[in-house]
């Protein structure tokens, strides 16, 4: 099958005079139609910058895509003009964010925030757009949808706001939905509902989803394919079942070991020792070396390549 999205060697840096923060440092990522790809990794590993790069919304002027390709539906998004890119945003690729409170405009009614996407991309009138907005709110499970459209975000609960965000993102029937930690700010029961809703969106509308999270429980629940990121790079990329059955990268294994499990509640919660290296000055060799339990001297000499260890299982580690 043709991939929907193919990122090749993407590099997104923050450049300030002579300091370079290498937020995304040579990412490859492929998303097929209808696929749910989870990106996992610790805070600061570049998950958000990867997704903002796809949207071409990296904070200007310091954040820049310095090289690489983002192929989507036959185009390289990196090469598009701002005008062409804005035709794609909200239309073919949508994005939802972590904080549904701050991601919605506090002074605009919910209905208007949804209709403006339709009016922008679908050349339809206000009334028709409002009808579709109400329909979409019903689809995402917002009760009293016809009343909610004339309410303001602060009048809704966190879960409802995230549903509104999803309605807004889905209303133009995008091919790809990017969700950057969409449930982190919600409480657990609501979290499950929102994840369930996203799965239904994929099933009913055939939308592919990139789901960013640092919760492996969410990954197990949702992912078809998983990309593990560390320090701006992909360290492991594999189907979800295979990942949980045979994690290969020591970092992935560390992440798995740090999931609290019900069986061994007496034991202390494991966490990977040490901290993520500074994105301004990555070490020459393996970026995980300082925290790796299996580290060898050779690890610090050359950067490991991302290699296909088994069919469809890519790992960036010289030792496997």
């Amino acid at each position: 099958m043709e991939p929907l999205l193919a990122i090749e060697d993407l590099r997104t840096y923050f450049i300030n005079k002579d300091v370079q923060v290498r937020a995304v440092d040579g990412i490859d990522l492929t998303v097929y139609p209808r696929q749910i790809v989870c990106i996992v990794g610790e805070s600061g590993c570049g998950k958000s910058m990867t997704s903002l790069s796809i949207m071409r919304l990296v904070p200007k002027p310091r954040g820049q895509i310095v090289s690489g390709k983002i192929k989507f539906a036959g185009k390289d998004l990196v090469q598009l003009t701002e005008q062409q890119m804005s035709d794609i945003r909200g239309n073919e690729i949508s994005m939802i964010f972590q904080e549904p409170m701050t991601a919605l405009n506090p002074v605009l009614r919910v209905g208007e925030q949804i209709t403006e996407v339709l009016i922008r991309h679908r050349k339809i009138g206000k009334r028709e757009a409002m009808k579709r907005a109400v329909e979409m709110l019903r689809v995402v499970g917002v009760p009293r949808a016809d009343e909610i459209v004339s309410e303001y975000p602060h009048q809704l609960s966190g879960g409802m706001r995230q549903r509104v965000m999803i309605a807004m993102a889905m209303v133009c029937d995008p091919k790809l939905l990017i969700a950057d930690e969409p449930t982190t700010a919600l409480d657990v029961t609501v979290q499950a509902q929102v994840l369930e809703l996203m799965k239904r969106m994929r099933d009913d509308f055939g939308t592919a989803i990139i789901l960013i999270t640092h919760d492996l429980g969410v990954v197990a629940e949702m992912a078809d394919h998983v990309v593990v990121m560390y320090a701006g790079q992909v360290v492991e990329s594999v189907g979800a079942d295979e990942l949980f059955a045979h994690p290969l990268h020591p970092y992935t294994k560390g992440l798995m070991a740090s999931i609290p499990s019900l069986d061994d509640e007496a034991e202390k919660l494991y966490s990977i020792p040490g901290t993520v290296p500074d994105a301004r000055e990555f070490p020459v060799g393996c970026r995980f070396a300082d925290r790796c339990p299996l580290v060898q001297t050779s690890c610090r000499e050359r950067p490991p390549e991302l290699r296909e260890i088994r069919p469809g299982h890519l790992v960036r580690c010289g030792l496997v």
Binding site: I88, R89, G90, S94, F97, A103, N105, P106, R120, M165
Partner: peptide
């Protein structure tokens, strides 16, 4: 603010 980024993410000019 976040909602400004949302507005761009919707494709608004």
């Amino acid at each position: 603010r976040d909602f400004t980024r949302t507005a761009y993410a919707k494709g608004l000019r």
